[in-house]
Amino acid sequence: MEDKNYLQDLKEIKDLMNKSTQFISLSGLSGVLAGIYALIGAVYVQTLLLENTESYIAFESMTFKKIIATAVIVLLASLFTAYVMTVNKAKKVGENMWNTSSKRLLVNFAIPLVTGGIFILLLLRHENYGLIAPATLLFYGLACVNASKYTLRDVRYLGISEIILGLLAVEFSGFGLYFWILGFGICHIVYGAMMHFKYDRK
């Protein structure tokens, strides 16, 4: 009888330690959707590139602006979806959306990501276009690894995959779009689905 109580104690201690440091309401399905948005965006960019008759894409050209606009729309749509679905899941699990752990998660995710954003703006300014695709993957990967301490473990492996793809994209420059498809499209779908089946379907 006594033992059973102590066992219960230990279990409760472990639960509280996890609950108070990790935000677990992250929605796996929103990752899958983000991956799908990225794939749609990539297909659109690919058609833009095929339409483009000139041998390279100028910074001022309409095509370039369209590509940037596509990237921004995909990013915003993904963030919006993730936000809505995470709020929903948090409600279902009974976790508060704005608690200490979700704030900590966001801050730690944002630090590498904002650094990357500024880095990419500086690359654009110095007309160093070749490194943009790898840099987005690398910094996004680092952001995931950094944030993973405060949420589900799977985010860590997603981050590591993105970092590897980012490094490969530096080596094989010129195939940036394909690495984007792998990194932002396929990786999100695979890890999102994994997380969905592991945590959400209960």
């Binding site: 104690d9 409760e12 201690i13 509280l16 330690m17 609950k19 108070s20 440091t21 508060n96 608690n99 200490t100």
Partner: peptide
């Protein structure tokens, strides 16, 4: 006691925790 055990568990892994956070967790 369950609640005292809970308070300590949270404070072991967090630098600090405020009243409302603890209340919600426990």
């Amino acid at each position: 006691h369950r609640i005292r055990l809970g308070i300590m568990s949270v404070l072991m892994v967090n630098e600090s925790a405020d009243f409302s956070t603890l209340k919600e967790l426990l």
